[in-house]
């Protein structure tokens, strides 16, 4: 696995912000950010429509492995030098449903990590359960002709 293609929602300002964050991190695996639904995405992954809906965050490896939503968030962290250990930890059944919250918390505040080091899964889960996810502010400005996008799912 040398490259991960991250199909993010370009209409979402928050997603674009997270995309910028991803791109400045040191990573083990190359990250290639592709706007979901773009011509490039469609030409690269013509068969993707059958697998993922318009609202799914999709990460695809160069080997063709497709990861959706929570798995995709974790895979983004897995690609990063500093966050791989956390990706492995956040993949536990208790924390996986909170992957999105975890990703947002980690990307906004590095201090979180030091606080989590001693904590057990349950404590982290409780904390993540309280994270409020911003709704996508760009929904209303979605370009004509692009389907989906009712909720912010891309990076």
């Amino acid at each position: 696995m040398k490259t991960l293609y991250v199909l993010y929602d370009e209409r979402c300002a928050l997603c674009k912000q997270l995309k910028e964050w991803l791109l400045v991190q040191r990573s083990w695996i190359g990250l290639s950010m592709i706007p979901a639904g773009s011509a490039r995405a469609k030409s690269m992954f013509p068969a993707l429509e059958k697998i993922a809906g318009a609202n799914d965050l999709v990460v695809i490896s160069d080997g063709g492995e497709v990861y959706l939503n929570n798995h995709a968030w974790i895979m983004c962290l897995y690609a990063l030098a500093e966050y791989r250990d956390w990706a492995l930890r956040l993949a536990s059944p208790l924390l996986l449903p909170l992957a999105r919250q975890a990703f947002e918390t980690l990307s906004k505040n590095r201090q979180t990590i030091s606080r989590w080091i001693g904590s057990d899964e349950r404590a982290i889960a409780t904390e993540l359960g309280e994270v409020a996810l911003d709704t996508c502010p760009a929904q209303s400005t979605k370009p004509v002709g692009v389907e989906g996008g009712s909720k912010c799912s891309g990076v």
């Binding site: 696995m1 490259t3 293609y5 083990w28 290639s32 490039r40 690269m44 992954f45 068969a47 993707l48 697998i51 695809i60 490896s61 160069d62 080997g63 063709g64 492995e65 497709v66 990861y67 959706l68 798995h71 974790i74 895979m75 897995y78 791989r84 990706a87 492995l88 993949a91």
Partner: peptide
């Protein structure tokens, strides 16, 4: 070898694998 396998199996496999761009 700092490449532990991803912690879960992929949700789907795309065939053919994406061409490099």
């Amino acid at each position: 070898n700092g490449t532990p396998r991803p912690p879960f199996a992929p949700d789907a496999i795309l065939r053919p694998a994406p061409a490099r761009s």
